[in-house]
Simulated assay, not measured.
Amino acid sequence: MSGSMVDPRVRDSAIDWMVRAQSGLMSAAEHQALQQWRQASAEHEYAWQRVSSLSLRLQPGAKLLADATARRALESAGVDPQRRRQMLKCLLALGLFGGVAWQGADSTLVRSALATYRTNIGERRRWALADGSSLWLNTASAVNLELTAQRRSVQLVEGELALDTPAESASLQLLTPDAVLYGRGAHWLVRHDRLGTQVTVLRGLAQVSARRHSLPVPLQAGWQTRIDRQGVAAPSRVDPFMAQAWLRGILPAERMRLDQLLAELSRYRPGFLRCSEAVAALRVTGSFQLDDTDAALALVANTLPVRIERRTRYWVTVVPA
């Protein structure tokens, strides 16, 4: 089932089964029912494997009933399975289980786990699609894909993609949480982060609109724009070679603030990477390897009056030398 979309109803069933399994209250009959549900179809098993990969299972919340208050609240729901699952989800949302937050089936975490294609932190991958298109995903990215005779749609759940479609291909819709794009035979770069969506057209033409503003803005090759809650920003020229640097594993910096550089590098490594306020505004110029962020940090330390302070492998701070 690799590369397939999961039916929302199957996805929700898988999530409910995971919540039950996490509760510690499943009976032997329910365990058997879960196995039967997983074995009923390849899609069920695929959805279960995706949901099971959620980081929720690796958090302190895996021992859900260690908290006495949470245990009493769950027991107060009685024996009705639906009431108990709802109570469990509420407790997770309130952070009563080890600080784990549960945002339901529409959370980015869940949607990323169930996406058609996804990458882990520090991973970049390319896929050759059935229609002749090429899809690249940058670090920690997720995409849902539907390419059929009736519908051609790509949904960027999170992260960054490059999509190169054949010149003779049919019109395609690309969605992000902020933006809606339409184009035909185009080569796009699209990134979504907390500031909005950035769109770059390398070839062809795209019609770009904000989710809340239906009036599209044409974006030609060699131009870039950003979309957020305010709408579509005025397009600006972009260097295509530099815009594609991440595809070559390079992060170029031209007098970039140090805190901005570290924010970019942090996308490619697990844990925390930050700097003290005393050095945040220092300017950096250079090319940094995305596949070796430790080497990139060493280059920063050799270039600027800073040193790298490591509490652990996953907690790194850049401070004054």
Results as ranks from 00 to 15, higher is better:
Met1Gln: 03
Ser4Glu: 13
Asp7Ile: 01
Arg11Ser: 09
Ala14Ile: 00
Arg20Gln: 04
Ala21Ile: 00
Gln35Cys: 03
Tyr46Arg: 03
Ala47Thr: 01
Gln49Trp: 04
Arg50Gly: 00
Val51Asn: 00
Ser55Asp: 11
Pro60Ile: 05
Thr69Glu: 14
Arg71Trp: 04
Ala73Thr: 08
Glu75Ala: 14
Gly78Phe: 06
Gln86Asn: 13
Leu88Asp: 06
Lys89His: 05
Gly95Asp: 08
Gly98Phe: 07
Gly98Val: 03
Gly99Gln: 00
Trp102Glu: 01
Ala105Val: 07
Leu109His: 01
Ala113Lys: 00
Thr119Lys: 05
Glu123Ser: 09
Leu129Pro: 07
Leu137Asn: 05
Ala140Leu: 12
Ala140Tyr: 10
Thr148Ala: 15
Ala149Glu: 14
Ala149Tyr: 04
Leu156His: 05
Glu158Val: 12
Glu160Trp: 05
Ala170Glu: 12
Gln173Ser: 15
Ala179Gly: 13
Val180Asp: 07
Leu181Trp: 10
Gly183Glu: 08
Arg184Asp: 09
Leu189Glu: 14
Arg191Trp: 13
Leu195Tyr: 08
Gly196Leu: 04
Thr197Tyr: 01
Gln198Phe: 01
Leu205Asp: 06
Ala206Arg: 04
Ala206Cys: 11
Gln207Glu: 12
Gln224Trp: 00
Arg229Met: 03
Ala233Ser: 13
Arg237Thr: 14
Pro240Gln: 01
Met256Cys: 03
Asp259Gln: 12
Leu261His: 02
Leu262Asn: 08
Gly271Ile: 11
Ala278Pro: 02
Gly286Asn: 00
Phe288Leu: 03
Phe288Tyr: 10
Ala296Cys: 01
Leu299Met: 12
Leu304Tyr: 02
Arg307Pro: 02
Glu309Gln: 11
Glu309Arg: 14
Arg313Ala: 14
Thr317Val: 14
Val318His: 02
Val319Gly: 07
